[in-house]
């Protein structure tokens, strides 16, 4: 078992143990007719605030507040623990009012986006590595432009009327101009690339002998561009899932404050 797997198992066991403990305590207090809903509520609020603090910790890299990796581990397992606490707090009942429904929606989206983000951050990096063509995200558009320019230069050496030029105008120019096939890459599909390479190969049947070498170079460039598109799509997903997770976290905190204030006012 790797160190990471050991850490994962330990974390999950701790969450399960904490959940069992909390459930037992709740049952004991319920049997004694002592309401625990308020305690669960405050615990949940504290957990949500702590989870949100990770975003602040990430900005305070200069302070000795523990490593970001440690904070992420706490973020993951405390985040996971909010689910049983939330369940205990609501007694498993569905919300009735619009504000409660909005809160539940916020919580579920934040929770699920967090879980999804974690999953993506474990699945996508090995895929990026296996695919090759590692590139810095910000530099990808530049590389794409360079490949496009390279292609234009190659095409400029062909005759005005040639099968390669036709192919280029019809299929390759739009492909090379900008990052393409975003969603196909997200879905891990290679169909678009296979079809494009088939088209280049088909063109070979009608190309002059001296153009065959050029077609080989085009094939190479199509592949390079596809690798870059893949890097661009996957790295975009890795960056932008946080745009769902983080803003809704702050919305959830605002709603929690409102919810707690109302609860205190009428309790």
């Amino acid at each position: 078992m790797t160190a990471f797997a050991r850490r994962r198992v330990t974390g999950i066991i701790l969450v399960v143990l904490a959940t069992i403990l909390l459930t037992v305590l709740t049952a004991v207090f319920d049997a004694a007719f002592v309401s625990t809903r308020g305690v669960h509520g405050w615990l949940l609020a504290a957990m949500i605030v702590f989870l949100a603090c990770y975003q602040i910790r990430k900005r305070l890299t200069m302070l000795p507040l523990g490593t970001s990796a440690l904070w992420l581990q706490l973020h993951i397992y405390i985040g996971l623990s909010t689910l049983p606490v939330f369940f205990l707090h609501t007694d498993g009942r569905l919300p009735r009012g619009p504000i409660e429904i909005f809160m539940l929606a916020c919580y579920l989206i934040v929770f699920l986006s967090g879980a999804g983000g974690l999953l993506l951050s474990r699945i996508i990096p090995p895929r990026l590595r296996n695919r090759g063509g590692e590139a810095l995200y910000e530099r990808i558009p530049g590389y794409v432009r360079r490949i496009a320019a390279q292609t234009e230069k190659l095409i400029s050496t062909t005759a005005e009327e040639s099968v390669i030029r036709d192919l280029f105008e019809a299929r390759l120019r739009p492909y090379f101009e900008q990052p393409a096939n975003f969603w196909r890459h997200v879905m891990h599909s290679q169909k678009h690339c296979v079809l494009l390479l088939d088209a280049v190969r088909d063109a070979g049947r009608f190309a002059a002998e001296e153009e065959q070498l050029l077609l080989n170079e085009l094939t190479e460039l199509v592949q390079q561009k596809d690798d870059l598109d893949y890097q661009y799509a996957m790295q975009s997903i890795l960056k932008y899932w946080l745009f769902i997770h983080v803003p809704l976290t702050w919305a959830l905190i605002v709603m929690t404050i409102f919810h707690a204030s109302v609860a205190l006012m009428y309790s």
């Binding site: 890299t61 200069m62 990096p125 090995p126 990026l128 590692e134 810095l136 995200y137 790295q235 890795l238």
Partner: peptide, 18 residues
């Protein structure tokens, strides 16, 4: 470790701040 790096660039940002 490219199998764990999410290319988030938190490392670069932290370096810049420092």
């Amino acid at each position: 470790d490219l199998d764990r790096c999410t290319r988030c660039d938190d490392c670069v940002q932290a370096c810049a701040v420092a």
